[in-house]
Design a protein around this nucleic acid. Structure first.
Lengths: 248, 248
DNA sequence: ACCATCGGTTCATTATTTGAACCAAACGGG
DNA sequence: CCCGTTTGGTTCAAATAATGAACCGATGGT
């Protein structure tokens, strides 16, 4: 990993919880020398990826990322294209739907949609990373990923993850109950790229107490239907094993 | 400019017109050696800022930019906060409204809104750069910018730009007629940061044939009102000179 | 008045970046 | 069918840029 990688890694230090960081803070968190950090930060700032604000001269994500994002969506409307389907899925199931995506070895939340009516809902945050070993989405992607082993091995609870992956390979969808968050029942299906490898997941996070066999069946069916559609929208291809499970 | 800067400059080669580029193409466009390019691109890809697709292994902007953008908007809702005002401005004037922003020495389109009814409208593209010397927005920002000289000097038509800047300093808004695009009448006001320096612009692009003295007056008034509001939303401060011009 | 921390800078040492030359694989005429 | 040209990608000695301990002035709390 070269200098560029180190600089880009600094961007990951900025989170929703800590959106602004000082120089010393960044140096400590990254393990880099303060002078090195300063040079990298200055360079990121000169291109607008970061900006420096206030009398404390703290750094935060800059306006250039907005442009890159708009450009990406114009070229590959990953999010925009899937949003209508995601909303419909939330409505059809009455629960919270969300979409995630493997980026650089991590599972990134892309978008989510709440059902318009109903009482208790599972709330979500955008731009977060999901743990592979505690989410149905994680198991779903890895079950059909091109190279899952390193990601599985890196998980905290490898055994439970392998179990869930095996279930997903057999049924076409993955499931978790109260692992990531208490009282949340998760169901997920993988999404595929043009080569037929899973690169994302579509999931429903339902309030566990509300789950019934009928609702479970509805959710699984809707997920498979929407999963096939989004895969198609993204120019992906369902592998034979999945096509058989989803369209029996 | 170090290695990181060179890598980040590569991101600018991806445009709406050419969203996917091959290695040789990028090397030629950037002037860097092919091997150097390849290393930088690989490093950008490893962090998800770029991705490589298809049998031709072309590069395009990657999904990580979506996360950064979501994080930025969560921390500093520049775009979201201004959108309602932008839409209201478009409605109130019946013309196309847009918002831009200085990022790393260039004027970047942040957002725009069309009036809901009416015939001819000026169309816009997101994530583009506006020339300082051919847009009302450019003159408006530079008229109250902290360090305008280098940006003015770099413009193609320096004289016309200086004239427009002088007008803007006197009136509080800038104007262009059919400079950027034919039959487009532009009016713009600067937007200010906490230090009272202009960092952005709010503008109306009107269909020139439709312009009347009354409409002109409406647009100028609405711009100044909305400009003050957005500046406030962004935590900015109107300089005295502008406060006097806008709230007589 | 003191100590700790902050953001930022300096400069000799060191490690990384650089790029001409080199693959193998496609592609497009003649 | 072959030859010239392009593609994406790799190699490695030479050149250059990154590194980090020590330093500075300013700020803030005790």
């Amino acid at each position: 990993m070269g200098t560029v990688g180190k600089a880009l890694d600094l961007l990951d230090l900025f989170t929703r919880v800590e959106p602004q960081l000082g120089l010393s803070q960044i140096a400590r968190a990254s393990g880099l020398n303060k002078a090195t950090c300063h040079r990298l930060l200055t360079e990121l700032e000169s291109r607008g990826l970061l900006e420096q604000v206030g009398p404390a001269r703290e750094y935060r994500l800059g306006p250039a990322v907005l442009r890159l994002s708009a450009l990406r969506e114009a070229a590959v409307p990953t999010r925009e294209a899937a949003m209508p389907l995601l909303r419909r899925l939330a409505e059809a199931t009455g629960e919270t739907a969300h979409l995630s995506h493997i980026v650089a070895g991590r599972l990134q939340t892309l978008a989510f949609a709440y059902a318009s009516l109903g009482g208790v809902k599972v709330m979500m945050e955008d731009a977060d990373f999901l743990p592979f070993d505690a989410t149905a989405s994680g198991a779903a992607v890895l079950a059909f990923h091109a190279d899952p082993e390193p990601l599985i091995a890196a998980a905290r609870d490898v055994e439970a993850l392998r179990d869930r992956i095996a279930v997903c390979r057999g049924k076409g969808w993955a499931e978790t109950v109260s692992t990531f968050e208490k009282d949340v029942h998760g169901l997920a299906v993988p999404l595929f790229d043009a080569a037929g490898h899973a690169t994302g997941a579509l999931a429903i996070a339902a309030a566990a107490p509300r789950m019934t066999p009928e609702l479970h069946k509805t959710i699984a069916q809707e997920l498979m239907r929407a999963g096939a559609e989004i895969t198609g929208l993204w120019g992906g291809q369902l592998p034979d094993a999945i096509a058989r499970l989803w369209h029996p």
